[in-house]
Simulated scan of single mutants.
Amino acid sequence: MTDKDKWLDWAIRLQSLAQNGLAYSKDVFDLERFEEIRQIAAEMLVTPSGLPIETVKELFCNESGYQTPKIDTRAAIFKDMKILLVQERDGRWALPGGWCDVDQSVMDNTIKEVKEEAGLEVQAEKVIAILDKKKNNPAQSAHHVTKVFILCTSMGGEFVANSETLACEYFELDKLPVLSEGKTTAKQIALCFEAAADEHWQTRFD
């Protein structure tokens, strides 16, 4: 682990402790101390991120209640043993998906994200894997993230370019494009291929 990674981990831990303290503490002086700790955690991210303190606080300190991991849902859709990927605005590719909205279940969010990013109506079939992003994806995040991969069946639809994605296309496992590895890795895609080929698949998790 690099010094930058350690710095991020410390800031995340401080933010979590401060948020939990703000959620449960009743003492006015303790609340002031937890607010100060949260401010320090945000300031710790200003230098490595290069972002203004206001932006860091908006991204990093905008939640209330007990701190829990954020959920990211990803859909695996196959046709002729090729998997559907969407091209993001930076030109890289990923499984369609994104943050689970606060009013959505994992299944509903997966279906919604596919419709928004790939233009397809899908039916969610089974959970392929529930994976910790920090253990499986190279990109660091200011939030702890749990990634849920869902095998889906396309029911029809057509891609339309939108604010999030430039294109969608089916790929063979050994002919993958440049991936947005903070969102989808080749290993995760290979896992989806395994699940699609195994009718007795058991959900992987870590």
Rank of each mutant, 00 (worst) to 15 (best):
M155R: 14
G21L: 09
L8V: 05
W99R: 04
D5P: 03
K126R: 07
A139Q: 10
L151N: 00
V46A: 03
W201E: 02
W10E: 09
P96L: 09
R92L: 08
Y24G: 13
R38T: 05
T110F: 12
I189Q: 00
W201A: 00
A42K: 05
L14W: 02
C152M: 06
L176Q: 00
A18S: 05
F193C: 05
A161V: 10
W93P: 00
E169D: 05
M107S: 06
C192D: 01
T153S: 04
I12W: 03
I53V: 12
E164A: 11
E63Q: 11
Q104C: 14
D132M: 12
A197K: 08
A11F: 05
Y24D: 11
L120N: 03
N137L: 15
E36T: 10
E125W: 11
T73H: 06
T203K: 15
Y24T: 11
L131R: 01
V106M: 13
K26E: 09
H200I: 13
K147T: 10
E158R: 05
A94W: 02
E121M: 14
G157E: 06
L22Y: 01
E35V: 12
M107R: 08
F193Q: 07
A129F: 08
E35L: 14
A186H: 13
K79V: 15
T68V: 14
I128W: 01
L173P: 04
R92D: 03
D30I: 08
A186T: 11
E194S: 14
R89H: 09
V86E: 00
K183D: 15
N137G: 09
N136F: 06
M81Q: 12
E194G: 07
W201M: 06
D103Q: 13
M44R: 02
E63V: 10
I37G: 01
P177C: 14
G97F: 12
V145K: 00
F29I: 15
P96M: 10
F193P: 04
L17D: 02
T73K: 02
G182T: 04
S64K: 11
Q140I: 07
N136V: 06
W7E: 13
P138T: 14
A76Q: 01
G98R: 05
D9T: 07
T203C: 15
D3G: 15
L31P: 03
S105V: 08
L85Y: 01
N137T: 10
Q15Y: 10
W99I: 09
F34P: 01
K26L: 11
N62Y: 09
S105W: 08
I12R: 04
T47E: 11
I130V: 08
F149M: 05
A18Y: 03
D198C: 14
F205L: 08
D30T: 04
E36C: 05
E35D: 10
N137K: 14
K79F: 13
K175E: 04
V114Q: 00
E32S: 12
T184A: 02
R33T: 14
R92A: 10
W201R: 11
V28I: 07
V178A: 01
A186W: 06
